[in-house]
């Protein structure tokens, strides 16, 4: 195919040494690389390590689109997306709101002693 394994070895080396900014720079300079799927996949990995989740999702998506049959890319992209929806907090469909009515704890002491600590729910 013509691409050089050494390119990604260097990237892996930087990632192992936690030099994420350097790894990012190196990968960004590989825009003409024939294996763009791998470049994007590695970029997604680097962004995950940096905590740049949106960028990670973006590049994982690009890798997946370029090679939809690649199990690794598909798995990675789907894992990231699953954190945005189902098992993640904030999207809990259970009716938590009904439980949070302050009248449930009326008559107990807790809300009213507290120097305004319990903002009205």
């Amino acid at each position: 195919m013509g691409y050089n394994y050494d390119d990604f070895d260097q990237v892996m080396d930087l990632i192992t040494k936690e030099k994420y900014d350097d790894a990012e720079r190196l990968l960004k300079s590989m825009q003409d690389h024939p294996d763009q799927a791998s470049v994007n996949y590695y970029l997604a990995q680097v962004y995950m390590k940096k905590g740049w989740l949106e960028s990670a999702v973006e590049y994982a998506g690009k890798a997946y689109s370029a090679e939809p049959d690649n199990q690794e890319y598909a798995g990675f992209y789907n894992d990231l997306n699953s954190q945005r929806n189902t098992a993640a907090p904030g999207n809990d469909k259970s009716d938590m709101f009904c439980a949070c009515c302050c009248t449930a704890i009326e008559g107990t002491d807790c809300c009213c002693d507290c120097m305004d600590l319990c903002d009205g729910l």
């Binding site: 989740l53 954190q83 945005r84 929806n85 907090p89 904030g90 999207n91």
Partner: peptide, 13 residues
Amino acid sequence: CNEVLNMTAAQLI
């Protein structure tokens, strides 16, 4: 927003 926050929370957890 919720999706982005969810993902952040998942990593935090």
